[in-house]
Computed example of a mutant assay.
Amino acid sequence: MTKDKGQTMQSQDSFTQVTFHYINGETESFDIPVTPEAFSEQLADFLSQPWLILHLFDQTVIILTSQIVKVEVAPQIPQLQGEGVLSDCQRVTALSRGAKV
């Protein structure tokens, strides 16, 4: 734990940033107070639940997992290995949205 402007803050390494992309095109990101390694161990469990419940400092967010189409995690979690996992990939274009021509 480090002090920052009088507040107790956890080390950046103990947080995982997760961005949820929903069916309707909206996205939202959260800093979750768990290491990427611990998050990777729980990821399949989280996504198999019908609801994710995130307690924030001022509110609780409940996410219907059937509405999630993509999850982005930073920093990367190389512990995820096996069938269906591709390593050393590079993004060539950003995801784009817009009117179809």
Score class of each variant (00 low, 15 high):
M1R: 12
M1E: 15
M1Y: 14
T2R: 10
T2M: 13
K3A: 06
G6I: 01
Q7N: 05
Q7F: 04
T8H: 12
M9W: 06
Q10F: 12
Q10R: 15
Q12S: 08
D13V: 04
D13K: 06
S14I: 06
S14M: 10
F15I: 02
F15Q: 04
T16E: 08
Q17W: 00
Q17Y: 02
V18S: 06
T19Y: 10
T19E: 13
T19C: 11
T19G: 10
H21I: 10
H21V: 09
H21Y: 14
N24G: 11
N24T: 13
G25N: 00
G25D: 03
G25C: 03
E26A: 01
T27P: 00
E28R: 00
S29F: 09
S29A: 14
I32T: 14
I32S: 09
P33K: 05
P33H: 04
V34W: 02
V34G: 05
V34K: 06
P36Y: 00
E37P: 00
A38T: 09
S40Q: 03
E41Y: 07
E41L: 11
Q42L: 13
L43M: 07
D45Y: 02
F46V: 02
F46C: 07
L47H: 01
L47I: 04
S48C: 09
Q49F: 11
P50M: 07
P50T: 12
P50N: 15
W51M: 13
W51E: 13
I53D: 04
I53T: 09
L54E: 08
H55D: 11
F57D: 08
F57L: 05
F57Y: 02
D58E: 12
D58F: 09
T60D: 13
V61P: 00
I62E: 04
I63M: 05
S66K: 03
Q67R: 04
Q67L: 09
I68W: 07
K70N: 07
K70L: 12
V71N: 11
V71P: 08
E72Q: 15
V73W: 14
A74D: 14
I77P: 00
I77K: 05
I77T: 15
Q79A: 15
Q79I: 07
Q81A: 14
Q81C: 11
Q81D: 14
G82F: 06
G82H: 08
E83N: 14
V85P: 03
L86Q: 14
L86M: 12
S87M: 05
C89P: 01
R91V: 11
V92Q: 11
L95V: 13
S96F: 10
S96V: 11
S96M: 12
A99G: 07
K100D: 15
K100E: 15
